[in-house]
């Protein structure tokens, strides 16, 4: 049984549907990569799982099951026992996700004091150990620094230390490297990977960098316009991408061989004026008549499915 299973999740904000029947699952100790352009619903999925949707946000249907427990409909009080303790979140921007007026040690100790009823002192000492484990130089002095005294990479390490503080079952990393230098990105991904191996935490890694995701994930789900359009094991999705959108994402990566970067023409559709049919069709070079209808996810291989009529036809042939 998967540790975290999201099934047919539909979310709307002020009546506009932004997640349309999203399903994926995450096994214990595994990494699931979620890829997609900005505004395709990746972050909203995170907020839905954490029950922290913005004002006007509503889960209209579907289920989120964590280790056999249905999370949708849980009371706020019970949800507090899940946030930070069982499901932890690493936010995108380490420059804004730390309180500028609190020492990093106190911020790391926060969740330990909440969930493991540690004293301030115990939390502080544990914070030093955690800073050590995430590779912040001089943890003994770093613990009493304010966030603005640290570099971006160090701050993101602090954020990761906070997330791993209570040994969560699931870690959701929402574009953890987007705000960082390219040189740091690999280090931070490596760090998450190392900590994951030590603790056995399942990681849900959100990014728009399909190559980086593919290199550290076991499974990959590609999001487009609030839907999962392709999902499967990282290897088969990256090597044998079926959905034209995934193919386009892959060919848009700089490889060194190309003289010119490939681009995907057009823009992602705006929520609210999605027409009938495949949402990617207006930008798709393989578009044909059938694309007027909404494709469902077709199995295109072992543990690999794609929401494209093209792959659907091939699968049937």
């Amino acid at each position: 049984m998967p540790l975290l299973e999201v099934k047919n999740l539909c979310v709307s904000i002020n009546g506009t549907e932004i997640l349309r029947s999203v399903s994926f699952s995450l096994d214990k100790g595994k990494t699931l990569g979620i890829v997609g352009e900005s505004g395709c619903g990746k972050s909203m999925t995170t907020y839905a799982i954490m029950n922290m949707l913005p004002k006007g946000g509503l889960i209209t249907s579907g289920s989120i099951v964590l280790d056999g427990q249905e999370l949708i409909g849980l009371k706020e009080r019970d949800y507090r026992q899940i946030r930070g303790k069982r499901v932890a979140l690493v936010m995108q921007d380490p420059f804004t996700s730390l309180n500028p007026m609190m020492k990093v040690g106190s911020q790391i100790a926060e969740s330990l004091m909440i969930h493991q009823s540690m004293s301030r002192k115990q939390g502080w000492l544990r914070a030093i150990e955690l800073l050590q484990s995430v590779g912040v130089p001089g943890p003994g002095s770093a613990v009493s620094k304010y966030p603005h005294e640290m570099s971006g990479g160090q701050r993101q390490r602090v954020v990761i230390a906070m997330a791993f503080a209570c040994n969560p079952e699931v870690l959701i990393a929402d574009e953890p490297t987007t705000a960082l230098d390219v040189t740091l990105q690999a280090q931070i991904l490596r760090l998450i990977k190392d900590l994951q191996e030590q603790s056995g935490t399942a990681v849900m890694m959100i990014s728009h960098d399909i190559q980086a995701i593919g290199s550290i994930s076991h499974d990959v789900s590609v999001f487009y316009a609030g839907r999962v359009v392709e999902s499967g094991s990282a290897e088969s999705v990256l090597r044998h991408a079926q959905m034209p959108y995934t193919q386009a994402l892959l060919s848009a990566m700089p490889s060194g061989k190309q003289a010119k970067l490939a681009v995907i023409p057009g823009q992602p559709p705006r929520f609210g004026d999605l027409g009938a049919g495949c949402a990617f069709a207006p930008r798709c070079q393989y578009r044909f008549d059938k694309c007027q209808e909404d494709p469902s996810l077709f199995a295109v291989g072992e543990n690999h499915s794609s929401a494209c009529w093209k792959s659907g036809q091939e699968a049937r042939v």
Binding site: M52, R80, G84, K85, L89, S97, L98, I114
Partner: peptide
């Protein structure tokens, strides 16, 4: 609405905290 308050909430902090 700032990120660090949201982050603390995602850690399981109560509203009074």
């Amino acid at each position: 609405e700032l990120d660090f308050v949201e982050a603390s909430r995602a850690m399981g902090a109560k509203r009074s905290y």
